[in-house]
Design a protein around this nucleic acid. Sequence first.
DNA 1: ATGAGGTCATACCCTGTGGCTATGACAGCT
DNA 2: AGCTGTCATAGCCACAGGGTATGACCTCAT
Lengths: 300, 300
Amino acid sequence: MAMTAVPDLESLRLLVLVDELGSMGKAAATLGIAQPSVSKRLTTLEHRLGLILVDRTRRGSALTPAGRVVCGWAQRVLGELDGLLTGAEALRTRRDAELRVAASMTIAEHLVPTWIGELRKSQPELYVGLRVTNSVNVGELVHNGEVDIGFVESPSAPGGLSTKRVATDRLKVVVAPSHPLARRRSLSTAELAREGLVVREPGSGTRETLERALRRAGVGELTPLVELGSAAAVRGAVIAGTGPAVMSELAVAGDLVEGRLVAVEVTDLDLRRTFRAVWPAGRKVTGPAAELLAVAAGMR
Amino acid sequence: MAMTAVPDLESLRLLVLVDELGSMGKAAATLGIAQPSVSKRLTTLEHRLGLILVDRTRRGSALTPAGRVVCGWAQRVLGELDGLLTGAEALRTRRDAELRVAASMTIAEHLVPTWIGELRKSQPELYVGLRVTNSVNVGELVHNGEVDIGFVESPSAPGGLSTKRVATDRLKVVVAPSHPLARRRSLSTAELAREGLVVREPGSGTRETLERALRRAGVGELTPLVELGSAAAVRGAVIAGTGPAVMSELAVAGDLVEGRLVAVEVTDLDLRRTFRAVWPAGRKVTGPAAELLAVAAGMR
DNA sequence: ATGAGGTCATACCCTGTGGCTATGACAGCT
DNA sequence: AGCTGTCATAGCCACAGGGTATGACCTCAT
């Protein structure tokens, strides 16, 4: 048994397909490949994982208990992959898109693929083009008519643009479960400011929101412990126990429910921020842009 | 451009590695492969996605804006893959494991890989063996000494076993955002019972919990709309708009925050359940099992 | 009983992906 | 000017994974 190789995505998709359809042959048919290919692929997947996943009977194939668990994990992998693919397609389709969207990083990463996926249910053929930049730039793109609609996380509505709230995001103070702070029920704002934090570089939307909230609460500057270049890097550092950080709940929801991270309440500090759709002032949003807006605003 | 093929996982890992290390050569070195392989792989990845991800300069490679977004998505895919792999390893290592664990489906799927990952931080070489069955069976396995520790979601503590609460799970009523119920702020228990629900088959832990809660609230039987064989299938049906369902927040946390699903409050209905560790009564939990218990109980 | 229709597995071939080495082109240091 | 570090290209080879053909085996209907 080699078992050193990771399973490939096609095989995982095959596994869930066999679970749904109850037979390798049917799975092969829906994928448009030959039945022996499926058979072979599944056995190599089983070898790679070192597990027997499928119970091959003469009248179809069902998953073994182990197979069912793995299938659950596989679906989560494939779900994330789906997001990547629709996102990539949107990034690729820039100029010639029927619906051109601009969004800031956090929104693009966590919400836009979902929205597009939702939109596809009613308009399967719609070509969406996505541009990712900072909030200021999104405003400009909208203003210049380079995109049909934009999404920003900035607290201040840019001038000359109409806006509509599409979602509320909460920033959360998170620490590793092993960190001393994880035992604390809550934290005062002053304590948070004193605490050495893992933060993004200055200028990132998340950091701006945090600093603004601290200023508004009348507490001084924050004291960075390390500065990292991406939300993913910050998350990694916190999980590794480097220190606490303030992050969007979008980025850590899974970690919180599965216990990789622990959220600490901060009293008297408003760490909410609103995500807004923006479009040229006065003009009415029409066509696909309006549909997207409806989807985005509806899913709250 | 073919662009019909999906990217493979190795290439995604490569992408995040290049982002972290800032150079293809270093990425190649840490993976133990040759630099040209990395170069070629990344270009084929770019072709597959139809995007330019990497900015190749003479003194290293940085990700383009598109690359950074895709990198974020890639990390999420890889994170889920990690769970699958540690889970699979635990499933594979049954008999000869140093720590033998049994867990019911929900716990095995959502929590055990996380716990093992956490445990690995302090004991990298520990071999963990996992068995997945229903709660009754977990009890038996523990009783017969076939596993060192078990985890169950059953509300009743099995006889002859000591238990400790490790987590609290909330069942949530979820609907697709387009569903009429999504507009409702809250629902009465009676309304919920009348509503046609997408449910698991009788005997599933989730369904048992729901039925018990309804009985305790003095409301009659629930009215199934469809019965499906797995939590993933139920989730799929709800997202597709088939109807509302009652599901573990573990299974839908991501969907809620990203808006694929909407939770509806139910007044006066206690849909919490506790996850418990179980071990032979009286005996003291020692060694790796104690460590795992600490991890599981600590991460709350 | 026996054939029909369904399941999956095996054997064989062939293509394409992705690994390797060797080498080139280029930028920035010293 | 050379040295060092970057990435790209070219040519080679192995093997994973696709396809077809075929066999073994159940179950059901005739």
